[in-house]
Amino acid sequence: MKWRSARRSSNVDDRRGGGGGGMKLGLGGVAIVVVIGLLMGKNPMELLGMVAQVQQQMPAGSSGPAQAPPVDDEASQFVAAILGETEDVWSAVFEASGSRYTPATLVLFSGQVQSACGGASAAVGPFYCPADKQVYIDLSFFEQMERRLGGGGDFAEAYVIAHEVGHHVQTLTGISQKVNDVRRRGGNVEGADGPLVRQELQADCYAGLWAHHAQRRHAWLEAGDLEEALNTATAIGDDTLQRQSQGQVVPDSFTHGSAEQRVRWFRIGFESGDAGRCDTFAAARL
């Protein structure tokens, strides 16, 4: 992926090395993980399981990174380039519809971070907090994605960033509020056909839309790049993760969509480049 041709965003807040600390959780920490999971549409029990796995893999006495990475290292340059391209693409899409796009800030952190949605550890994975309109990423997730989930590669990482920015687009357009309204009324938002899955699949479609326009602007995809994104979408499908973690698939507890659905909706966005084709809430078939 020839990402170096993209404009660097100035909306990256690099907090790496700022006191990541260990990730041992007491009762208060468990409560925070549960709250974060509910706010972001993630299964709290899966998050707690991931935290436990990470804790087991940490060396005794480990307390996270001792110092921050160098300023403007290649990792932060990559993130700034992808974020900048999401800003340029979505600004054009919003302008075409007569509105204005307000960019999100992307926070890089290591170990732990405090957001307006509460505290979170690296085990939560990348997330978007609608309360402060910021995307949060611990770059160690990309290493785990490649090592343990079977995804990975620079375009796969770009897909993850673009997916989280897709949630920012949903906040700006009011889609996220509709899902929150269902939850507030006591409605069930999980399930293979539920609002959470529809919201996540739309963010996948938006990631594909971004990739479509970015490719037209830069012709930056190389052999194997698209497959990287599709392999990652497959690796983080609800059915794939459930099969790995509990040995069975429970569609009623889906929050992000199956591997097939995530690949399908990314492709719809990538092949069409049309935000109107990403209306998963009106789709009869997910």
Rank of each mutant, 00 (worst) to 15 (best):
K2W: 12
A6D: 04
N11Y: 12
N11W: 10
D13E: 14
G17H: 09
G18T: 00
G21Q: 01
L27R: 14
V30H: 03
V33G: 10
P44E: 08
L48K: 04
A52M: 13
A52V: 13
G64N: 07
P69L: 10
E74N: 10
F78V: 09
A81F: 03
I82P: 05
L83M: 05
V89Q: 00
S99M: 06
R100V: 15
Q114K: 14
Y128F: 15
D132T: 10
D138N: 14
E146K: 15
L149C: 11
G150P: 02
G150F: 11
F155H: 05
A156N: 04
A162D: 10
E164T: 04
V165G: 08
L172I: 11
Q177Y: 09
V179N: 10
N188R: 06
D193E: 15
P195S: 14
A203L: 00
D204S: 06
C205D: 06
G208N: 00
L209S: 08
A211F: 01
R216M: 06
R216G: 14
W220E: 12
A223Y: 04
A235F: 03
G237K: 03
T240Q: 14
Q242E: 05
Q246T: 14
V250Y: 11
T255P: 09
H256F: 01
S258F: 01
E271Q: 06
S272N: 11
G273F: 06
D274H: 03
R277S: 14
C278W: 01
D279T: 05
F281Y: 10
